[in-house]
Design a protein around this nucleic acid. Sequence first.
DNA 1: TTGTACGCGTTATCAC
DNA 2: GTGATAACGCGTACAA
Lengths: 340, 340
Amino acid sequence: MSSYLAPTLNDVAQKAGVSTATVSRCLNSPALVSKRTRDKVEQAINVLGYTPNFGARVMASKRTYTIGAIIPTMENAIFAQGIQAFQDELHIQGYTLLVASSSYEPQIEEEQIRTLVSRGVDGLLLIGHDRSNDVIDFLDEKGTPSIVAWAYDPEARLPSVGFDNFAAMRELAEYVIELGHKQIGMISAWTRNNDRARARVEAVQHTMLKAGLNPEDLALIETDYGIETGSEAFEKIMSIPCPPSVVFCGNDVLATGALKKAKQLNISVPEKVSITGFDDIELAQIITPELTTVHVPHNEMGKKTAEVLLSMLKGKEFRYVTNLNINIRVRSSLAKKNKN
Amino acid sequence: MSSYLAPTLNDVAQKAGVSTATVSRCLNSPALVSKRTRDKVEQAINVLGYTPNFGARVMASKRTYTIGAIIPTMENAIFAQGIQAFQDELHIQGYTLLVASSSYEPQIEEEQIRTLVSRGVDGLLLIGHDRSNDVIDFLDEKGTPSIVAWAYDPEARLPSVGFDNFAAMRELAEYVIELGHKQIGMISAWTRNNDRARARVEAVQHTMLKAGLNPEDLALIETDYGIETGSEAFEKIMSIPCPPSVVFCGNDVLATGALKKAKQLNISVPEKVSITGFDDIELAQIITPELTTVHVPHNEMGKKTAEVLLSMLKGKEFRYVTNLNINIRVRSSLAKKNKN
DNA sequence: TTGTACGCGTTATCAC
DNA sequence: GTGATAACGCGTACAA
């Protein structure tokens, strides 16, 4: 096999008896070519099974019609749904998606950014605002339009389509604390290098303060992302002298782990302890008890992000910041603090 | 911004006082360059912030170091974990992953294949064997090494890393039928264009026959992929005159939907009806009751697929077929048929 | 409306 | 070990 050589513009041109320029025009601005010529060319293209060479096209035009996305992980549903919506919209507009994952590691993210940029992606999707200025300088320099999703910060250097993690978690925390909870625990993803996680923790602490509780009393555990790690953290948090009556989790996956462990330990939820999540992935309504959580409009976010990024490419050089609506979903994993 | 021009090999060469050829060698085969020269060049690269131009590189070398993958959907966990493992291995070996999704539509898959090939991907990952010969001819012609995952068929034209869906489901079906179940239901993804789904259905029918049951009695519903559709199908299947005592589901997502609906309808699982899944995604052990299912080694499959595909690129022109080990995981969603 | 000719930034084949 | 230089396939001024 593979002594095969792909037909080129030139081959098509010869077959159709025209110049390469004309063939190129047929492909890129058909309006400039007479119908007669166009027909000839199209036929030649079909006969030869010609497909434009991507590399050459990139070199000549400087456009790849490719968008890069770097997400912390594809392994679970947190980003999957939003990314699917993102890619759907890109596809509609004729773009292709290049995905990479960073495993929540800033160095890996940086490496991936460089890779994607050197591949000439026309634009870049990143998650959250936490990254070094150097990286953003690099993006600036290369002139690669970039957008951040899953976060909202009008002060940040990159435009974003997301939501205010602090405000969202605060809303949940206020609701929870009004139910009478005073001993409070929290399981969070690592807050270092993760602005979303940090904002969520701060929101809980802030709300405690407002409610006359001491934020220092928050029993906080930071851990890796995952069901198993959520379970471990929950066990730890429930074994302290005065265990909390509610455990906030930084996301639904951690909350799921917590819930699982509670079941194993025969700690009834929500009677003995309430558990909350964040993200409202499909899972939240499937586990028992159903998870009280913060609803994030994944599809809307994915689609909107694509729209904004593509319009940035089209020259609309604006600093777009979208704050999507979030709201809390109260389900059975949360109850009033009982009086013991 | 962006009157900026990226530094080229030439710029680096001038700055370092060497030829472009030498710079190129430093990048691609450093061993051929003296340490002294290499240092000079590396410094120039750093000062200028040079990154190779991807398009040019592709044009000159015919290699993109890019692998394409087309999966039915990224929206849920079924493929996510395997793909993450696939990409991790690619990344280790210096390749980048280009993903697209087909939404389970053959035409979209075909379109995506053409897009990725014209982008010059060095290799392609596809899911399942069901596709037209034309597409495979096209791949052959273009000389794009392609591999199939999530399926196993030594007769198929494309090499594969996967497992025997028929054998796997048969093992589960045999186990279930030995428990005394005679009224049998099944919720499957659409079998048209989906060899995995088809094999699983056939395995159940085959096993029924072997056990002296009439395969025609199988209460079968085909539906779209999803939790909600699983729920609807389950409700339908349980409302027939003689409802089944066990419902096989084509995958864990459908089974989850079924389980959810059972809860809503107050049909106790497994006392009243047993439910089984397929895939053993994380979810299977989180829902209540835990799901009896077929375990698929997602990580192993993803990693192995990458290894095989990359070794195909490296010229090992062999028709590799791997049949991974699967086995059933019996959990509490399955019980003996009670005698009523 | 169409054709000519050059440039895009690399890699690879030669010589030296 | 290193340096010229010819491809690679396409887009696009510019000319006709």
